[in-house]
């Protein structure tokens, strides 16, 4: 039996790496991958809690999260495609029009 604490700390670590990825990387697609990483870290903690609480809710939730993640990936990637067509770049620093 894996202790809950271990799972949660692994989850927190993966999540933090995902956060760092969002803040440090400049390639939009890699930033997007980091977001997926964060989603997975959350999934892991869901499963951990579900197991230690003898509940199925967490497992069903992951099912939904994965569907949402798939939808999000599809829409997000198509947005990236659309942006790439106009700006010919994947560098996040080039997408800074939304400001004062």
């Amino acid at each position: 039996m894996i202790p809950l604490t271990h799972i949660l700390i692994l989850s927190a670590l993966l999540f933090s790496i995902g956060v760092l990825g969002v803040m440090l990387r400049r390639n939009v697609i890699v930033i997007f991958m980091s977001i997926e990483l964060m989603l997975n870290a959350v999934n892991l903690s869901f499963i951990g809690f579900a197991r230690s609480l003898d509940s199925m809710t967490g497992v069903v939730f992951i099912f939904f999260i994965i569907v949402v993640a798939a939808a999000e990936a599809v829409v997000g990637l198509s947005i990236i495609l659309a942006i790439y067509r106009t700006r010919k770049s994947l560098n996040i620093d080039d997408f800074n029009l939304l400001k004062w």
Partner: peptide, 19 residues
């Protein structure tokens, strides 16, 4: 793999297939 160890085989399968 960790999901399998936590007795969530179905999630593990869709993790690998979908993700």
């Amino acid at each position: 793999g960790i999901y399998v160890m936590l007795n969530a085989e179905f999630v593990a399968v869709i993790q690998v297939l979908v993700y």
